[in-house]
Structure formats: C-alpha cells, structure tokens
C-alpha cells in the first residue's frame, strides 16, 4: 500500500524523534510511537471533531493548545503530550463530564468497562471540584433491544458519526446548546418509533459509557465491541472497481 508520493515528515513528541506521513494526525503518530494521549470523542475509524478537548497537546511556537486528533503533523514540530498543565486541564475536563450528568458508576451497566471511568482513573481524577448539576433527564427504553440513558451521556457524538458515516442512516443527531444539549433520534422522538434506525447496534458499540447499552444488562455486564470499526472503514475505502 506504500505510496511513493507520500511525503515523510520528522518531528519530536515528548522528546522522542519520530517520522510520520504527511497528513497523519498527532494522535495517530503518537499512538504508533507508543505514546498515550487520552481522548473521548475520538474513535479509530470515524471522522475527528476535536470536541472533547481531552487530547489537547502543546506544540512549540503555538500559544494555544491543539487537539491531537485533528491537528496534522508538520516537519520539525515539537509536541508535548503530557505535563502538569495538560494534566490539570484534562482532569478538569473529566470532572466537568462527571458533574454535568448523573454518572453513578456503582450501579451502571458499563461499570468496569467504561472509557470515561478508565480515563478518570488514568488521569488520577479522585474528586470533582465543581458542583454536580444533577439534571433530571429522561430514559428512553422504547427500542426493542437498546436503551438510551441520558444520565450517562457525555455528548461525544460518536453515535451520531458512526450512524452517519458507517451505517449511512443518520438516525442520531444533537439538539440544544450547552447543558441543554442532548443526542436525539430522528426528529427528537422515542427510539422505538424511529423509521430510519436499522437496529444495527453500531452506536451502542462505539458509545464510551453506559449511555447506549443493550437492554436487560445488569450492572457491569455491558461490554462493547469496537474491533469492527477499523475493518469496516478500510473495506469501505477500498476501491473494488
């Protein structure tokens, strides 16, 4: 698959010299180099939107922090993925995610398999310093096989993108702004009444938390399958003609 026209760039990530193809993101290159950058809205195989701000990194010469998932590498770039300032930012972002909705890990179907929980642990988030909003949110159990629990949703929009980009149904979308934002089905209607949903379950499997889950799963029983996504993406991109 090597393309001779691809330009190779060299850069430094956390003091390590790495080379990459032009057009790759900092996230991709860091991962290849074995450097972990936390993320939440990013998922391998879908488009990147740089929304969650967890993957912010420092790039020498830039005053602003840049999201690693949407920033392409450039020749001579010097990137710092982890320092005190970044850790503080990331901890605060995770804390805000917890504070915004009702994340009750102890009784959550995704307990122990949750990406939000995992990132919180990795970042050493031991407490939430801002007040919890405790919003009163609905629970959609109208679909035959799946549930939507807004209490656990962090608005990463992975479901929206996988449904649009991979399944091609575009059942999911987002309504409202700020703390009023919510993922919605079709024209903001109960999932069970959706005409466009194919029931494929991709949204459930990419959801990082217990917001989307299979119906009837008891606490900690919801494990998600992610392996399908990169393969599907590659297959779709392949030119079969």
């Amino acid at each position: 698959m090597a393309n001779q026209n691809v330009k190779i760039v060299t850069l430094v990530i956390d003091g390590k010299d790495v080379s990459a193809q032009q057009g790759q993101t900092i996230m991709q290159v860091a991962r290849e180099a074995g450097i972990y950058i936390p993320y939440m809205c990013h998922v391998e195989g879908l488009s990147n939107i740089g929304a969650c701000r967890l993957c912010l990194v420092e790039v020498q010469g830039q005053r602003r922090l840049l999201p690693a998932c949407t920033t392409e590498v450039a020749e001579g770039m010097v990137v710092t993925t982890n320092n005190e300032r970044l850790r503080k930012y990331r901890q605060m972002i995770v804390e805000m995610m917890f504070a915004e909705r009702n994340h009750v890990c102890a009784v959550c179907v995704s307990n122990g398999h949750c990406e939000l929980q995992r990132v919180a642990q990795k970042l050493g988030v031991t407490h939430v310093r801002m007040p919890y909003l405790h919003p009163k949110l609905p629970f959609d159990a109208s679909h035959e096989r799946f549930i939507l629990d807004h209490d656990r949703c962090i608005l990463c929009t992975r479901c929206v993108r996988v449904c649009d980009e991979i399944e091609g149904a575009h059942t999911w979308d987002v309504r409202g702004r700020g703390t009023e934002s919510r993922v919605i089905i079709d024209l903001d209607q109960p999932w069970g009444t959706s005409e466009s949903c194919t029931g494929c379950g991709k949204c459930v499997n990419v959801c990082p938390t217990g917001a989307l889950a299979e119906k009837g799963r008891a606490t900690a029983e919801m494990t998600k399958k992610r392996q399908f996504l990169p393969y599907l993406t590659i297959m779709r991109e392949e030119d079969w003609a």
């Binding site: 102890a106 009784v107 179907v109 609905p138 629970f139 159990a141 119906k215 009837g216 799963r217 008891a218």
Partner: peptide, 14 residues
C-alpha cells in the same frame, strides 16, 4: 423512578 426495572437489584441492594 424512571430507571429501567432491571437496575433495581443493584440499586436497592445499596
């Protein structure tokens, strides 16, 4: 109220 019934064992146990 409003939670799915199958969460009840884990919730009420607490």
């Amino acid at each position: 109220e409003g939670r799915p019934f199958y969460e009840m064992p884990a919730i009420t146990a607490r």
